[in-house]
Amino acid sequence: MKLYDIAHSRTGDKGNTSTISLIPYKEADFSLIKKYVTDEAVAKWFAPLGPIKVTRYEFFKVPALNFVIENALGGGVTHSLNIDRHGKSYSSALLEMEIPDK
């Protein structure tokens, strides 16, 4: 299944760093997400963006992950030639990732 089926997401930006949340609609799906959507998996998924570094952070009382992706915005909001300089649309790309359903 796709992450889109079980989770929602929003992207933010700081300089040349993209931050992407991943929030399951149901708490029961959080363990599956934690198992498969690792920092390595996200780094591999977004590898076409260039040499990026991904760090995964977890919230403890809200089932949610936050991915911090460095060097993902073509030089940053004020320098990038990208049409989407903020990388606002990256959340939609993350939700297209396929994961096993158990």
Binding site: H8, R10, D13, T17, T19, E58, F59, V62, N66
Partner: peptide, 12 residues
């Protein structure tokens, strides 16, 4: 929740 996590990095 979407806004809680928006544009932060390490939540701690």
């Amino acid at each position: 929740k979407e806004q809680l996590i928006y544009e932060i990095q390490d939540p701690t």
